[in-house]
Every structure is written in C-alpha cells, then in structure tokens.
Amino acid sequence: MTRQRGDVVVETRGLCMHFGGVRAVDQVDFTLFDRELRCLIGPNGAGKSTFFKCLTGQLTPTAGEVLIRGQDMTGAEPFEVASLGVGIKTQVPNVFDGLTVDENLWVSARRWHDDRRARALVSETIERLRLGDIRKMQLGRLAHGQRQWVELGMVVVAEPWLVLLDEPAAGMTHEETFRTAELIEEINKTSALIVVEHDMQFIRLISRKVTLFHEGGILMEDTMDAISADKRAREVYLGHRA
C-alpha cells in the first residue's frame, strides 16, 4: 500500500509541544519513509499544524526529538530545515508581496543554483504551473488561489527531496484543488511529502496513508478508507460530516 523505499526521512520521537497547560502536541512518534505521501488530518485543535510547525522549525518543541534524514533538527531554525533541501508551504500564504511572480520563484531557485540555472528553472516552473500570464505581476495584486499557486511554485522550483505542505488547497476553487492534487502526485514521483489538510475530498484525491491526529496525539494511521470505516475515527472527526 504505502510505497516504502527503505529509508526513513522524517522521524519524531516523543515529540511534545506544550503552551502553558495546553498539550497541543503530546508524545508523538511519527515516521515517514522516502518517496512516501502522507496526509495529516484531524479536527481543529488536534495539533496537526503545531506538529507541522515543530517539523519546520517555526516552533521549538517542549520535549522530544525531530530527525530529518537522521539529522537531529530539534529546535532548528526554519532556514536550517529548509537548507537540508526541504520545501515548505505554510498555512497562510507566505509570499513576497512586493515582488513579481518571476522574482518570487527566482529567490527560491537562487538559493541552490547560479543565476542562469535559476532563471531556467523559473521559466520551466512557470510553464509547468501555467503562471505565464501573471509572471510579471506583483504578488500583492493576485487572487488568493494564485498566491497559493505561486507559493507551491516556490517549493517546486527548488527541487526539494522532502516537501511539507500545510493546507495547500485552502481557499482554492474546485478546479484549482484538482490541479493541486495532480501537482502533488507529480512532486511525489521524486520526493516525499507530508500534507496537512482539512478538505476530505482533496485527501481522497491524493491519499495513500493518512495519519489522524486527535487531542495532540496520533489516533490512528491507515488508509483513508480504513479511517472512514473506523468507529473511533468517525466519532472524533468524520462523525459530524458523514
């Protein structure tokens, strides 16, 4: 079912993130294999986004360890995580509003390549994501969905081997959501992915293995079908939807 190819790329051991008395993430042991595509789901406040922020260095965990490709990245700065070759997209679109689409992608590509190669990669990505019409426009003037796409482009253009996406389909139209799912499948051909998502339809489009978060811990880890069939899972999350 899961396309395990041996190597563990992300591992957390006993990961905890407490805010005062609130245990947003509590004792999470999580493993992701190379080329795996994993969705994190769960109701609001289940701790998925907090867990995501611990992985990406936006939060320093209270306890536990984060290992990326065997390296201890617990409490690392976001740039240190990204410098391993990890592509990250946050929940709120984080883009460079004052720069054009071209420049946004260039800054991402230029981290890894010289100017010529970076520009070639930018053109390639712009074609791939069909951003040609807006490539000279400033991000601040684009619609929400387009900004999400540009941010995905910034992830893709850097050719990461591990991609972490927090709600990539949030606020997208139906068609955009569908294309995002296609893009994720494509990224998955060369890299491992963790996708935090709320949109169940979207998860059904892309999912292999799903990790269900509940009250700061992992409730279960299985296929979407198995989770939908599970009574406990339906109670905490799917119950009010199904």
């Binding site: 740039f79 946050t90 984080n94 883009v95 004052g98 910034m154």
Partner: peptide, 15 residues
C-alpha cells in the same frame, strides 16, 4: 529585499 517582504518565507527557502 525578499527578507524585507517576508522574513519567514525567506527563512523557509533556506536563507
């Protein structure tokens, strides 16, 4: 300039 525009994004790109 990118950092001026969005510091977190620049860090998430590895700068």
């Amino acid at each position: 300039v990118a950092i001026r525009e969005n510091e977190l994004r620049a860090e998430l790109l590895g700068y």
